[in-house]
Computed example of a mutant assay.
Amino acid sequence: MACSTIMWLDEVNATVEFEPVGTHPGHRRRGLARAMLLHGMRLARAAGARHATVACAGAPGHPAARALYQGVGFREISRDAPLAKPATAA
């Protein structure tokens, strides 16, 4: 598999979320993810979606992913701060 995503359609809020989005390292920089996202947005619009979201985990550490998403029209609306709790001994 060269590229994949899962689209989650929220019909009540007319929103689609792409998550996860990924391209095999041997197939990057060929426009596959861009084509997949654009096609997915067309399908989502046909299904009634008016908004689309994508999560870019660790966005500052993934400038190529950010550039991809911005290149197809996504814009940053928030930055999540991951929280972790170390396991405690039982």
Rank of each mutant, 00 (worst) to 15 (best):
M1E: 03
C3S: 04
C3Q: 03
C3V: 12
I6R: 12
I6S: 07
M7V: 14
M7C: 14
W8P: 00
W8T: 11
W8Y: 12
E11L: 06
E11T: 11
V12W: 10
V12C: 03
N13D: 15
T15F: 04
T15G: 06
T15Y: 04
V16Y: 04
V16M: 08
E17A: 13
E17S: 12
E17D: 14
E19V: 00
E19I: 02
P20N: 12
P20C: 11
P20W: 11
V21F: 00
G22Y: 13
G22D: 07
G22A: 14
T23E: 07
H24I: 02
H24T: 08
P25E: 14
G26V: 00
G26N: 05
H27W: 15
H27A: 14
R28T: 15
R28Q: 15
R30E: 13
R30I: 01
G31C: 01
A33Y: 06
R34S: 14
R34I: 06
A35W: 11
M36A: 09
M36S: 05
L37K: 03
L37D: 03
L37T: 01
L37Y: 03
L37M: 13
H39V: 02
H39I: 01
H39T: 13
G40S: 10
G40D: 05
G40N: 05
M41L: 07
R42P: 01
R42W: 06
L43N: 07
L43P: 01
L43R: 14
A44K: 08
A44M: 14
A44R: 11
A46C: 03
A47M: 12
A47D: 15
A47W: 13
A47P: 04
G48L: 06
R50L: 14
H51Y: 14
A52P: 01
T53R: 14
T53S: 12
T53C: 07
A55H: 08
A55N: 07
C56N: 15
G58S: 11
G58E: 07
G58W: 05
P60Q: 02
G61D: 06
G61Y: 01
G61A: 12
G61E: 06
H62N: 15
P63C: 02
P63L: 03
P63N: 04
P63F: 01
A64R: 15
A64M: 10
A64P: 05
A64K: 11
A67G: 11
A67I: 09
L68I: 09
Q70Y: 09
G71H: 10
G71M: 08
G71T: 10
V72P: 08
G73Q: 13
G73W: 09
G73M: 10
F74K: 10
R75T: 13
E76Y: 03
E76M: 07
E76K: 09
I77S: 10
I77F: 09
S78H: 11
R79M: 12
R79A: 08
R79W: 06
A81P: 00
P82C: 00
A84D: 07
T88S: 10
T88R: 14
T88Q: 13
A89E: 13
A90M: 01
A90G: 10
